[in-house]
Computed example of a mutant assay.
Amino acid sequence: MGEFKGDTPRNRLHHDVPEKMKALQYSEAEKFAVVNIDVPKIGDDDVLVKISACGVCGTDLHYHKGEFLAKWPLIPGHEAAGTIAAIGKNVKNVGIGDRVAADPLQPCLICFHCTRRKPLLCDNLTAFGGNVPGGFAEYCRYPARLVHPIGDLPDLEAVLVEPAACATHGIERMQIEVGSRVLLFGCGPTGMLLAQLIRMNGAAHLTIASKGGPKLDLAKELGIADSYITISDDQPHMEMQALKSANPYGFDIVVEATGAPTVLEQAIDFVRKGGKLVVYGVYDESIKIAWSPFRIWEHEITILASFCSMGHIPEVIEYVKAGKLKLGGIANKTYRIEEWAECLEAVRKQEVVKAAIVFD
């Protein structure tokens, strides 16, 4: 068993941590395999996390194709939860045996944007599961400041902490005024978290408009909105027109969280004068849409986006501790890394609400 930098009796690896570990690794776009590699080394300010579960995100489909920050070889997985297996000598915030969730983004702190207090826009972002090894492995190294204790939060709820942090940043970006009426297109896993936070942070009324299926069914079961509109595949224009007729003044805030360009293009028609349109879904870089600049100008519509999250996990944990953020039931299907091809297909076809990779 190898020792880590900064090894002391208190910090030493547990006896059951092996030299090698299994990991899902990409050698290039769309080419992956389960490999047996060295357990990561850690530095004085790092921790080693034994991964218990890691959520599968739509972003992982982009990494699969070599998009975003993908850097080969790549171990994906950015929604990780697990147990601290080792700590560096300077680590004080967690101890061996603590269960934690990980923030996957580490800014450089010295680039143009970081020095102007915009670390989320860092030019040299380290993204665990994107350009450095992530949570689709038995162990992962993280800087200690990126992990947060989660107590006895179940694994399949803990994998929702990072997506909820992204939703929390979205709430910051929206700056919802008290008494607002909000329309949310889409109720995928992050949309369900976003919906709950919208209602807790100023919205008087929230409408979810989404395709029918297990995701919308779960949203209704969780009671996360005030009204629900099912958008059919065969006559979506009918439901969209009915929604518009029922809300002649539109909505103070319209959030597009489906990632469908056609929905984003139509979403602006539901924004009331002086309202906001939030681009929350993830789109292929090549996508272009058409909006009327006159409408945006005449109605003084604000268009904004929410990229992801950085440093918002403590706020999420506060909501969870208070029993106000419902995480149970959203991650409804688990896979082993050996089943990654099957998992990818299920996520791509939207056959699951949310998938997670799990380990023993």
Results as ranks from 00 to 15, higher is better:
F294W: 00
F294M: 07
F294E: 00
F294L: 09
R295D: 08
R295G: 00
R295Y: 00
I296G: 01
I296V: 15
W297N: 13
W297F: 14
W297T: 10
W297A: 11
E298P: 00
E298V: 11
E298W: 13
E298D: 14
H299F: 10
H299E: 14
H299S: 14
E300W: 00
E300M: 05
E300K: 11
E300I: 00
I301T: 12
I301A: 03
T302C: 09
T302Q: 08
I303L: 12
A305F: 08
A305N: 15
A305I: 05
S306T: 13
S306A: 08
F307M: 05
F307L: 11
F307K: 08
F307H: 09
F307R: 12
C308Q: 04
C308T: 12
C308F: 11
S309Y: 11
S309V: 04
S309I: 01
S309T: 05
S309H: 09
M310Y: 10
M310D: 00
G311Q: 05
G311S: 05
H312K: 11
I313E: 03
I313M: 08
P314G: 07
P314T: 05
P314M: 08
E315M: 04
E315A: 10
E315F: 07
V316A: 10
V316Y: 12
V316Q: 08
V316R: 10
I317K: 01
I317Y: 03
E318F: 00
E318W: 02
E318V: 07
E318H: 04
Y319S: 02
V320A: 05
K321W: 03
K321E: 14
K321H: 10
K321Q: 15
A322R: 13
A322C: 08
G323N: 09
G323I: 13
G323Q: 04
G323P: 06
K324M: 09
K324Y: 04
K324I: 02
L325R: 07
L325K: 06
L325M: 09
L325E: 04
K326T: 13
K326N: 13
K326R: 15
L327H: 04
G328W: 03
G328H: 12
G329W: 12
I330C: 09
A331Q: 07
A331W: 12
A331I: 11
N332A: 02
N332E: 08
N332P: 04
K333T: 15
K333C: 15
T334V: 14
T334M: 07
T334E: 14
